[in-house]
Computed example of a mutant assay.
Amino acid sequence: MKDGAQYELEDGGGERARLVLSGPYLVSTIGAVDDELRGLEGDPKTIDLSGVSEIDTVGAWVACNLAARHNAEIVGANERAKRLLNAVHTAGNTADIRPSRRPVWERVPERMGELVHEFGQGAVGMIGFLGQILLATLSLIRHPSRFRGKALVRQMELVGVSSLPIIGLMSFLIGIVIAQQGAVQLAQFGAETLTINLVGRITLRELGVLMTAIMVAGRSGSAFAAQIGTMKLTEEVDAMRTIGISPMEALVIPRILAAVLMMPLLGFFASCIAIIGGAVIGDLMLGIPFTTFLARVQEVVPIYDFYVGLAKAPVFGLIVALTGCYQGMQVEGNSEQVGLKTTKAVVQAIFMVIVLDAFFAVFFTEIGWG
């Protein structure tokens, strides 16, 4: 290390040793001796910088750390070195790198309180957002010429038509799984033919609409949040307000109407495909002809199961679209917020759909449609 940073630990003759630093102590040269200086076993009384040819902030920081670690005095520094040493010394911070961690019995209640507060704020914000939508809807009723029909048709295509393949595939596989597992369990009681009842009722009443809502939340709800959030971030929403266009009328209402209108159709489509999947398994595993399976579904499934599924579908569509648009309008600050709000929109929409489905199940059972 002829041209690099060097050091030498001189014996003090019964006293504490002297550490002599020499060469350039720069960020580009100090790496070779930094590890050795950190593991220095001796305990020098002084640190001599008279042999240091050049020094920068990093070199001064190393020298100050050495002096503090060994309780040594720095000598032989030139004027430049002294200025750097003073600057580094006064800029030092003895605070802990990590804050002290409070006991769990303090942290858990505090975090629970924060979550409850955030939930309350979110509920109030959602109610206020719904109020804005109602006001915008009333304004459109008074001025129907402002209604954006092309935007509605475009959103209906994105929410409904474009999602048919994935919803159809998912529903077909769900019908196969329900029929196969149901047949295996019912075979223990010699009641394989009741698989038709199981597939027909559970798909038309519950799983068809519920799984469709979850798929729409993951596909369209996230798209709503990401699209509107990006527009908020690029100030397009503010620009719309500036030129006199209501973001509620132009962005939110077409998306909500598209989800509300398309969900019953998608739910019915998903239920039909799931029944077809069950009929395929019935033909292959149970020996029930395909057409017989479909005809039997019409006989064993009450018509009110169909009505229950249709009644839940637009409500689920409203929840999914409302959550996605609301979270998109909450984006502000930076691009990370788009991802966070999109994730939040999907999670909240799925959670609320499942909770509402449970309430619907109890309600329809109480009125005799169980």
Rank of each mutant, 00 (worst) to 15 (best):
G244P: 06
A123G: 12
Q185A: 12
P99V: 10
E10C: 15
A72M: 02
D357H: 05
L261K: 08
L173T: 08
S222F: 01
Q327V: 02
G4A: 13
E10P: 02
I275L: 09
F119T: 13
Y25W: 15
I166R: 08
L257D: 08
V297Q: 04
D305N: 05
T193V: 13
I367T: 12
I367L: 10
A258L: 05
R154Y: 09
P103W: 10
I228G: 05
F306V: 15
L85E: 01
M248W: 00
E249G: 08
L19H: 05
D357E: 06
L294P: 04
L169F: 09
R154C: 00
V320C: 04
V362D: 07
N86M: 13
G277H: 01
L322C: 14
A226N: 00
E336W: 02
F129D: 11
S222Q: 06
L261P: 13
A81V: 04
E106Q: 09
R146Q: 14
V280W: 05
G51E: 00
A136S: 12
V338N: 07
F351K: 06
R102E: 13
A349D: 05
S163Q: 04
V252Y: 08
D35C: 02
T193S: 08
E299G: 13
E36M: 11
T292M: 10
I228L: 03
A91C: 14
V27Y: 05
M262A: 12
D48M: 06
S171I: 03
W105V: 14
D34W: 08
W61K: 15
D357C: 01
V177Y: 01
E192I: 08
P247G: 09
E299K: 14
R102Q: 13
G190A: 04
A179C: 06
G31K: 02
F147T: 08
M248H: 00
A226F: 11
V153D: 00
A274T: 03
V315Y: 01
D35W: 11
A225W: 03
G218V: 04
T94W: 04
E332S: 11
V315Q: 09
S222L: 06
F316R: 04
N65A: 15
L257F: 14
F351Q: 04
V52E: 11
K312P: 04
F316G: 08
M285F: 13
E10R: 15
L198N: 10
T193R: 08
K150N: 08
F269Y: 12
I350T: 02
I176S: 03
H70F: 12
L135E: 14
F224L: 06
D43L: 07
L251V: 02
A187V: 03
A223D: 10
R255I: 11
L135F: 14
N93A: 13
M211H: 06
V161S: 09
I276Q: 09
V346P: 02
N65D: 14
N65H: 13
L49R: 02
A345E: 06
I303L: 15
A258N: 01
S50C: 09
L169I: 12
S145C: 07
A239T: 06
E249D: 11
A191S: 13
A191N: 10
K2S: 15
A63C: 14
A345P: 00
V280P: 09
I127W: 05
D3W: 07
A361W: 00
I196S: 05
G277F: 03
V347T: 09
Q181L: 14
D43C: 07
A91S: 15
F351M: 01
R111L: 15
Y25V: 02
G4C: 09
T94V: 12
I133W: 01
K232I: 01
L49F: 02
A63Q: 03
